[in-house]
Design a protein around this nucleic acid. Structure first.
Lengths: 216, 216
DNA sequence: TCCGGAACCGTACAAGCGTTCGATCGGCAA
DNA sequence: TTGCCGATCGAACGCTTGTACGGTTCCGGA
């Protein structure tokens, strides 16, 4: 591949603008014409930079995830203490999320619209990311009975959900949020379930069987 | 309004089937024709039960949220201890989520596609729900420095994210998940941040300024 | 037997969609 | 000047979409 810096720069700008449109309207509701308007590139001109709407989404997700992982690995390679490594993960994830809210919203929200090869590539990256966190949590030697898979996804849930509610002008700054989430997670994760469990275990009668939910 | 039990029953069945389609393909990608196929009701016959695609989505979300809130309030009215009340919230939310995964995925994932009056109605319900949890957390007298708003949404994040990863045949049963999440959250929430914080606070140099993220 | 309305259907339409195609422009090498 | 090529465009095509409309079937009451 030849070196075309102006091409690369414009492509990245398109990815950024398109991510904004996707973040606001959602992938399927956003039309290529919307993206044409947002990027100031003609409808057909866009197809010089990607070959289909799906590839555009893939490029956004892949580039976003790529830089997220690259930054993480670089930081992680310098540390071996599991507790610090987890801190790095949370910090990296949250900062990236809040600095690239639009792109990360697209990454979180449009997780399963890609198909075929595009889908596989992104899914592999996600699995690798989750495996990294899963491993760190295992190294932390958590309290007995803690389920690692559940804990991993619960942690991701805490962090990924922020795009639905976080308002920079209203909520805590990134650094405080990092502390808050890390503290919340670590204390629960490392505390034994039998000892010192707040809010008694058996002083509440069980709910009716789940069939009551089916409301039909 | 007259009493038409057969009408109501069929509408609920349509809502359920449509929720399945929306959950699988997403609201915008799913067409009324898809729903027609899933419900075995003709394209135009559907419009006897709702007046637009958006209203269909609203009916799904409203009915789903309605029963969720009704069940919760009934349970909550019988309890005053904040710790138990929180346990009820988590239990109710998770059970409902896992029993009505499709509907709840639609409720979580298609949160901001409704407009106008439809949007307001659902948003009000959500706000009321969040306020209830927010209030319970406040009654728990958390550790100093904990941010209530952040904690509330972090808790919702843990619980709402499950639709992206939970597989009934692979993961913990509902009851264990309840314990896991409640334990995780409560221990972090009620533990003071200054005392016994695992994974030292200052033994990691700060990351570079956030400008490094902007990858363009 | 007739009637009215609830329940339901087949068909059509205008709008919007993603994508294609041939043409055009500007700058650089020959 | 010519020729090439990366970059860009306007216009169109074929298709799907949500919805409207007029008709049809079914059934309980008069």
């Amino acid at each position: 591949m030849e070196d075309r810096p102006s091409y690369d720069r414009k492509l990245l700008q398109i990815l950024r603008d398109a991510a904004g449109v996707f973040a606001e309207k959602g992938y399927h509701r956003a039309s290529i014409r919307d993206i044409s308007a947002a990027t100031d590139v003609s409808l057909s001109g866009l197809y010089y930079y990607f070959s289909s709407k799906e590839e555009l989404l893939f490029l956004i997700q892949d580039h976003c995830f790529g830089t997220l992982l690259a930054c993480l690995e670089e930081e992680l390679n310098r540390e071996s203490d599991p507790a610090v490594r987890l801190r790095i993960v949370v910090r990296n994830h949250l900062r990236f999320f809040l600095d690239n809210m639009k792109e990360m919203k697209v990454l979180s929200h449009e997780a399963d619209v890609l198909t075929g090869k595009y889908q596989n590539t992104i899914q592999d990256r996600k699995r690798a990311y989750a495996d990294t966190v899963h491993e760190i949590l295992g190294d932390l030697r958590p309290a007995d009975g803690a389920d690692l898979r559940t804990a991993t996804f619960v942690l991701f849930g805490m962090m990924n959900w922020v795009y639905t509610w976080y308002r920079p002008e209203r909520d805590l700054p990134v650094e405080r949020m990092e502390e808050e989430i890390l503290h919340l997670f670590l204390n629960g994760f490392l505390t034994s379930k039998t000892s010192s469990d707040p809010g008694g275990e058996d002083d509440i009668r069980p709910l009716e069987p789940s069939s009551i939910w089916r409301s039909g």
